[in-house]
Design a protein around this nucleic acid. Structure first.
Lengths: 255, 255
DNA sequence: CGGAAGGTTGAGCCCCATCAATTATTGTGG
DNA sequence: CCACAATAATTGATGGGGCTCAACCTTCCG
């Protein structure tokens, strides 16, 4: 557990900044939330399915996954958690988590007590609204994945996922130009795409051959970002990357 | 648009009643929410993808679906909306919906202005908590569907879906014993399960042959409800059918 | 340098899709 | 109530996308 980091450029600020213009005081409120952090090694579960939830979590650095496994070992990754993502904000409402959350890379996380969340919502309603909006956005990506798994081919799914990650990393400034670092094995991609690792390998090769992406080592380049329908009809706004409509106070939770 | 209905046995009351014990005043607050209703014919879109959201909706009677279509006509149903379900509670945060909502059967719905929701959350925090919890529960079923589509076989998916519907209908008292009315065509089942209608037919036949379900006309009977792993390792608590942990005030939204 | 983990490639198969035809069911107007 | 059409469900034949098994190669890392 460390303290005193500089949250000047925290990815959460960048993310919420897309929705609301923040005052200095509001930025400070966020800074207080993330004043303490801890580092978690790779391949570690932060939350295990069936366990009770205690605190909300904000990811500052690294990649994590939300996943569930069946008793015979089959695993499905629900989505990827990137820097700036929050989860279990509503932890206090549930007795147990229906899924696990695990780190892919070493992660820096902030564990936030429920009371800090509820206080923030009460005192800084606009921030709360932005947070709710980003939660809604995450729910939209869940639906997007349902569409992918149910109705898109392997190539469409893969292209769409890479495009989604490219977009999300752009929001938090973790992209340079068309390319980004992808710290995933093909096993993990397979578990997210509902495929086998073998078929992921073939699928990525075909995307490369079609000139859609470039993949070397663990760097991915989206070659034709304008050609959206090639990436499975990616909805630009499915991520709801637009400012909040009006000055609305957000949901607040109070004990 | 009609008025003055008796909400004495409104499915929303049954649903929220699983989470909180409600006072008479609280019941009255719900009753006020659903005092006006309107009937919508079958196969009608309540919300169309890309359109702005105006009001929250509470479903009183009938079945509806949340779905998205691709430009070539492929459709994926995200989930089914049953009596007592609410949606777009956070409508005011979004500029446009990323998916459509359409009726399957004729539906009775309550259109609730945002202000009524925010008021209710402010005045009746425990009700708000129960509503948030049921929203979280719906999100859990989205994840469950991702797991199904990504990692379960056609038979497992179908069995799991029927079991889910059976459970949810039980909560709102729309079940008698092991059987329930399923107003879905196999085309709709196919679009929910990520299969073709032809294969749905074969899959249901196999489930019948294995003695898991009975299907006649549009009545479905779950034959071995105790045999949960046969239904794709259904997590009883994935629906979070447990009371709220503590006396917590819910998120409230205020303009 | 050697082992482990990850990635690639090939061969064969199976689940589910597709196409097409038939039967059953539902709904409508006379 | 029946005739008839439209929709839904079923069945068969065939094909393909993705899975499985297995071998080999590459990258990573102590």
């Amino acid at each position: 557990m460390s303290e005193g980091e500089k949250p000047a450029d925290h990815p959460l600020l960048r993310k919420l900044g897309r929705y609301v213009r923040m005052s200095t005081a509001e930025r400070q409120a966020i800074a207080n939330l993330v004043s303490r952090s801890r580092v978690v090694p790779a391949d570690t579960d932060l939350v295990r399915q069936g366990e009770a939830l205690a605190k909300a979590v904000i990811l500052r650095d690294g990649w994590a996954i939300r996943y569930r496994t069946l008793s015979d070992g089959r695993r499905q990754i629900m989505n990827f958690l990137l820097p700036g993502d929050m989860f279990d904000l509503c932890a206090f409402l549930l007795t147990a988590s229906d899924h696990s959350i695990g780190t892919i890379t070493p992660c820096t996380v902030h564990l936030v007590p429920v009371s800090a969340i509820t206080d923030l919502f009460r005192r800084w309603p606009r921030l709360g609204a932005a947070m709710w909006k980003s939660a809604l956005q995450e729910e939209a990506t869940l639906r997007e994945r349902i569409l992918s798994l149910g109705r898109r081919s392997a190539q469409e799914r893969a292209a769409h996922l890479l495009y989604e990650l490219w977009m999300r990393l752009g929001v938090i400034g973790a992209r340079n130009g068309g390319s980004f670092e992808l710290p995933l094995t093909q096993i993990e991609l397979a578990d997210a795409l509902g495929l086998t690792p073998v078929h992921v390998s073939r699928t990525l090769r075909r995307l490369r051959q079609r000139g859609l992406v470039e993949i070397q080592r663990r760097r991915v380049t989206i070659l034709r970002p304008r050609d959206e329908e090639k990436y499975g009809e990616f909805m630009r706004d499915h991520l709801h990357q637009t400012p909040i409509k009006e000055a609305v106070a957000p949901p607040t939770a109070a004990p």
